[in-house]
Amino acid sequence: MIGDRQCNKKVTRSGNSRWQCDRCNQEFEECDYRYLLQAQVQDHTGLTWVTTFQESGEEIVGYSAKELYFLKYEERDDVRFAEIICGSLFREYLFRLKIKEEMYGDEQRVKITVVKSNKVNYFWQNTPA
């Protein structure tokens, strides 16, 4: 915990099968697995790369980050892992995006982050109140 908030910084495995947080300078038995997903999205105007985090990552992939981690690294089921990832390709979503320009060195870049994602529901009906 950092103050009253949970520290969500990246952790690395230390030599004794524990997790080391560089920000907190502590070791932990377990950690929370979280998404940091890079995806290419496309609409009628073209395509671009976006970054998505925990909640949107779960919506897109359909599994929690912890479930995918254990499938890939504990159960070592690469075939099932690939099926899950491929199953999330070419799906339609409505995205709320945060777009900002940044300077990286002397180069100006656009950074696009998914704030919220929802699967497209073609059967949703607007019923009168």
Rank of each mutant, 00 (worst) to 15 (best):
M1R: 07
M1K: 09
M1A: 11
M1C: 08
I2V: 13
D4K: 09
D4V: 07
R5T: 12
Q6E: 15
Q6P: 07
G15C: 02
N16S: 14
R18S: 13
W19G: 02
W19L: 05
C21T: 02
D22K: 14
D22W: 04
Q26N: 11
E27T: 13
E27R: 11
E29H: 05
C31Y: 03
C31E: 00
Y33F: 15
L36S: 14
L36G: 03
L37H: 04
L37V: 09
Q40V: 15
V41P: 01
V41C: 12
H44T: 07
H44M: 10
T45L: 12
T45G: 01
G46Y: 03
T48N: 01
F53H: 10
Q54P: 00
E58G: 14
I60S: 02
V61P: 01
Y63V: 00
K66L: 13
Y69R: 08
Y73R: 03
E75K: 15
E75T: 11
D77T: 09
D78Y: 11
R80E: 13
E83Y: 04
I84F: 04
I84L: 08
I85V: 14
C86D: 13
G87H: 05
F90H: 11
F90D: 09
Y93M: 01
Y93F: 15
K98R: 14
K98P: 00
E102I: 15
Q108K: 15
R109Q: 12
V110N: 06
K111M: 12
K111W: 06
K111H: 10
I112G: 01
V114A: 05
V114Y: 05
V115C: 06
N118S: 11
V120G: 02
V120L: 15
N121S: 11
Y122W: 11
F123D: 14
Q125A: 09
P128Y: 10
P128M: 08
